[in-house]
Nucleic acid binder design. Structure first.
Lengths: 136, 136
DNA sequence: ATATATGATACTATTTTAGTATCATTTGTC
DNA sequence: GACAAATGATACTAAAATAGTATCATATAT
């Protein structure tokens, strides 16, 4: 089982890279070479990050991508949500109707605690902290 | 995204139920009715738990399943591992070769911490604690 | 002997993941 | 204005994981 898929993984790597040169506009082609990620796949990933407001894009010649926000405001959990939806440990935590008695089920209660804790931890990790330019 | 699949979920429910009557031998048919889980699917799940040494089975007439161990020795993480393999937050934590520089990558290091913490938490949850017959 | 149970395992359908391909649009440069 | 270089949008495909079903073999209580 995996918590983080390729989309998210590649997105994080790209964001980390871009955070090293916040002013620069970088093309997909460059990033693809630099990070060794298939270009068409990376392209779609960057487009989604753009649509989500994490990146800003510039169309046309001399165009490309750069961060839309400061690296320390981009949390790992936000990136996960963009590509994988909200982090949910089990179905019944997302959709309580599928659970017979979510209010009394001890598994439900315990997993909810763990999920909250995990989310908090993933909020604590930012692009800045990953590129070594922010708090450790 | 989901951390816990149906197999694991159903397995936990079955184990919780069985822990309420540790002496009794219960058939798949009974459990299937009681927990409202499709019988053939539940059956395969119980067989895997048997093979893994979590349940003990009795073949033939009057046969069925019961816990092979005390409820407080069956950890949630063990059940997850049986059905989903070892809990791994990202590919490069399972298979460091796929990672360019796992020793220096900050994401790798942070995710490893989180994974260890999560595993510890899932070890703390036992079948006993879920059926309310052990420590809360 | 037979009905009732599990053991083992092969099969199928659906969903998710991982990636490709393509046409449309924008924009800097000549 | 033409053109090349870039992203926007979106449809498509292949492989893997998930969620089951089906079936034949074997053991056992009555």
């Amino acid at each position: 089982m995996k918590l983080i898929t390729k989309d998210t993984d590649y997105a994080i790597r790209a964001l980390s890279y871009l955070s090293l040169y916040p002013e620069r506009i970088v093309t997909v082609a460059q990033l693809s070479r630099e990070l060794d990620i298939p270009q068409p796949f990376l392209r779609r990933i960057l487009q989604r990050l753009s649509a989500a407001g994490v990146l800003r894009s510039q169309k046309g010649k001399q165009g490309g991508f750069r961060l839309a926000r400061l690296p320390d405001t981009i949390q790992l959990q936000e990136v996960i949500r963009i590509f994988q939806g909200p982090l949910t440990l089990m179905e019944c935590l997302k959709n309580p109707k599928t659970c017979v008695n979510s209010s009394t089920c001890p598994l439900h209660r315990k997993m909810k605690e763990i999920q909250q804790d995990l989310r908090k931890k993933l909020d604590g990790i930012t692009v800045a902290s990953l590129s070594g330019k922010g708090a450790a």
